[in-house]
Amino acid sequence: MPPTSQWQEWQCDYLRENYPHGNTNAIAAHLGFPPQRIRTKANELGVAKAPGAKAKRTGKFTPQMDDALREHYATKTNAEIAAMLGMKRIEVAHRAMTLGLRKTKETKGRTVREIMLRMGPRQGQFQPGIVPWNKGLKGYSVELGRSHYKPGNVPPTHVPVGTERWTATPKSKPDAPRYLRRKVAEPNVWKMVHHIVWEARHGPIPDGHVVVFIDGDTANIEIENLYCLPRTSLGIANGARVPYHLTDAYRLMRELQQTIEDSDK
C-alpha cells in the first residue's frame, strides 16, 4: 500500500470531491488506503466534512421512510420509530437531525424514562427508608474504628489570633484591590485591618457606611488615609470622580442645579 507521499493526482481529486459528503470507510476501500490515511490526507488538502455529513452517510432512508419519519418523529420515541422502519435507533436520530426534526417535550420525557428502565436500578442508589450506616458518626474512620479527631484537636491550618493575611483576588478580576485582614477571635473570626484602625479612633462604623482609602492605596492603612462615607456617596464618588470628602457638597450642588432648571420651565 503506497504511503501518503505517493498519492496520485486522480486520488487527490477523488478525495476532494467525495470526502465532504461521502463515507470515509467507503472512500478508503475505493482508493486502497486505511481510513486513518484518508483522514490525514484530507487534512493535508484542507478538505473537511460538510455540516451534517455524518448524519447523512447511511443512505438507507427512502422518500417514503422520510415521510413517515416526519409524521411520527415528534410524538414517538426513537425506539418505536426504529422498530416501525426496521432501522437502528442511531440511524433514526441521525436522519432526524439531517431533516431538522424535533421531539415534543412529552416525548423527550418518555424517552428518558424508557432509557432509565433499560438501564435498570442504579447500583448504590439509596432507596426510601434506608438508613446510612454512618448516620451520626461524624468524622468516623472505618480503619481506626473511631473518629479521626480527638477532643481538643487543632488542625494544621490553625493560626493564632492576631495573624494578618491579604485577601485573594478572584481569577476573573486579577487587578482587583487586596485588603489586609486580621484574625480577632477563635475559631475563625477575621476583620479588615482598616476597619479596626478606623473604629479605634472614631468608634463603630455606622450601618450603610464604608471605610475607603483616600489615595486609593489599600496598603496605606494610616488613619489619615481613611475616610468613612455612606454607600450612596461612594457611588457618586466613583461615578462622577468626586473626592470622597466633597460628595455631600456635590450632591447639594446637583440638587440646587435641578431646582433652578425646574423653576425655569
Results as ranks from 00 to 15, higher is better:
1 M>N: 04
2 P>M: 07
2 P>L: 09
7 W>L: 07
15 L>D: 07
21 H>C: 06
29 A>D: 14
30 H>Y: 06
30 H>T: 14
50 A>M: 02
55 A>P: 00
61 F>L: 07
62 T>D: 05
65 M>T: 01
67 D>E: 15
73 Y>K: 01
75 T>E: 12
76 K>M: 15
76 K>C: 12
77 T>G: 05
82 A>E: 05
83 A>T: 08
83 A>C: 05
85 L>Q: 05
91 E>G: 15
91 E>T: 14
95 R>H: 08
99 L>Q: 03
109 G>R: 15
115 I>N: 14
117 L>M: 14
121 P>V: 10
123 Q>W: 04
140 Y>F: 15
142 V>W: 10
144 L>Q: 13
145 G>V: 09
151 P>G: 03
151 P>Q: 04
152 G>N: 09
158 H>R: 14
161 V>D: 04
167 T>H: 00
168 A>W: 00
170 P>M: 03
171 K>W: 00
173 K>C: 01
178 R>H: 04
180 L>H: 07
181 R>S: 07
183 K>F: 10
192 M>R: 14
192 M>C: 02
194 H>W: 10
196 I>T: 08
199 E>K: 09
201 R>G: 00
203 G>D: 03
204 P>W: 08
204 P>I: 09
204 P>V: 14
206 P>K: 06
215 D>I: 02
219 A>N: 07
220 N>F: 05
221 I>E: 08
225 N>D: 06
230 P>S: 15
232 T>L: 06
234 L>Y: 13
236 I>H: 08
238 N>H: 13
241 R>K: 15
248 D>W: 01
252 L>N: 11
252 L>Q: 15
255 E>P: 00
257 Q>H: 10
257 Q>N: 12
258 Q>S: 13
